[in-house]
Computed example of a mutant assay.
Amino acid sequence: MSTSAVDVPAALPAERRRPMPSLRHLTGALPYILSFAALLLTWHVAATFIVRSVLFPAPASVMMKAGELLASGVLVDNMVASLQRILGGFLIGSALGIPIGLAIGSFQLTRKLLEPWTEFLRFIPATGMITISVIWFGIGEESKIFLIIYTTIFIVILNTAAGVASIAPNKLRAAQVLGATRWQMFILVALPATVPFILTGMRLAMANSFTTIVAAELVSAQAGLGVMLWNARMFMLVDDIFVSLMTLGILGFTADRLFRFAIYRFAGRYNPVA
């Protein structure tokens, strides 16, 4: 009798022997859950037994206040206003920064012309540009989006230019030997090799967008988490301040996770992030 029947279990497809996706995802999320639980526990102990001050509320008090603001719609309105500004400035800044970075990294003349301006402007903080944004764009949405663009574009430019500069010369020479034109070398060699740097720059730029939104919304904004934070400070509403800060942190963390998922899902072969 043939022994092939005995070998069937070993020949099963690899997918059949892998853990269930739900269990794998739960295992991967467990460190995050434990980390947040430890943070909340530390916060509770510090507020209840160490600090004991109305200026440092316990997490339960902040969560109750967040529930009230969610139920009234105030928190949702402010979140939507801030996210619209962040998304608009981030997308425009990335769309401008990528081609500029590619040009700086690809052409020596462009690098000599634009790199000094990039290095000069990136050291001027976005908060220092608030007055200029109001003078140029008024107190409407344009000035706030300009500040987000300003704080994101240089990170994308520098990362993209670094990606182009890091391409191994052997790859370009090999493509040239095989008869590739300069355009084909750019599309088939340079651009794919630069994608990890571009995506990393965009991810860092997104983080900068969240850190700048509070300053941007100080320019006569009617809604937004920055406005909510400022108003809470004026009236010493400490719970509201903590709700604003926690909301910014949660939204930023969620946006970063979604960005990483999008990279894994649509650009996984470039493997820019762990």
Rank of each mutant, 00 (worst) to 15 (best):
S4F: 05
V8W: 12
V8T: 13
P9E: 00
P13F: 09
R17A: 12
R17W: 06
R18S: 11
P19F: 01
M20Y: 09
P21I: 00
S22Y: 09
L23R: 15
H25F: 03
T27W: 08
G28A: 15
L30V: 15
L34C: 07
L34Q: 03
F36H: 04
A38L: 15
L39G: 09
A46H: 06
A47V: 10
I50G: 04
S53L: 06
A60W: 10
M63V: 14
A66K: 03
G67S: 10
E68R: 07
L69V: 03
A71E: 10
V74T: 15
L75P: 06
V76F: 14
N78G: 07
M79R: 00
A81N: 09
A81E: 10
S82C: 08
L83Y: 06
Q84S: 09
Q84N: 08
R85E: 15
R85T: 12
G89E: 12
F90R: 01
L91I: 15
L91P: 09
P99D: 08
I100S: 04
I100K: 00
F107N: 15
F107A: 14
L113P: 10
P116I: 04
E119W: 01
I124S: 01
M129Q: 12
M129F: 02
I130G: 02
S133V: 02
S133H: 04
I135N: 04
I139K: 12
I139W: 12
I148E: 05
I148M: 08
I149F: 09
Y150P: 03
Y150V: 00
T152L: 06
I153Q: 05
F154M: 08
V156P: 08
L158C: 01
L158M: 12
L158S: 01
N159E: 01
N159Y: 04
T160C: 07
A161W: 02
A162W: 07
G163Q: 03
V164S: 05
A165M: 14
A165E: 15
S166D: 15
I167R: 04
I167G: 02
P169H: 11
P169A: 10
L172Y: 07
L172S: 12
Q176P: 00
T181Y: 06
M185S: 14
L188T: 07
L188C: 03
P192I: 03
A193Q: 09
T194E: 08
I198C: 02
T200Y: 00
G201Y: 11
M202C: 14
M206W: 06
M206A: 09
A215W: 03
S220Y: 07
A221E: 13
A221P: 11
A223L: 06
A223E: 15
G226Y: 13
R233T: 12
R233E: 13
M234V: 11
V238R: 09
V238G: 06
I241T: 08
F242V: 13
S244P: 07
L245M: 14
M246A: 15
T247Q: 10
G249P: 08
G252C: 11
A255V: 11
D256I: 00
R257I: 11
R265A: 13
R265V: 02
R269N: 07
Y270C: 00
Y270P: 00
Y270A: 07
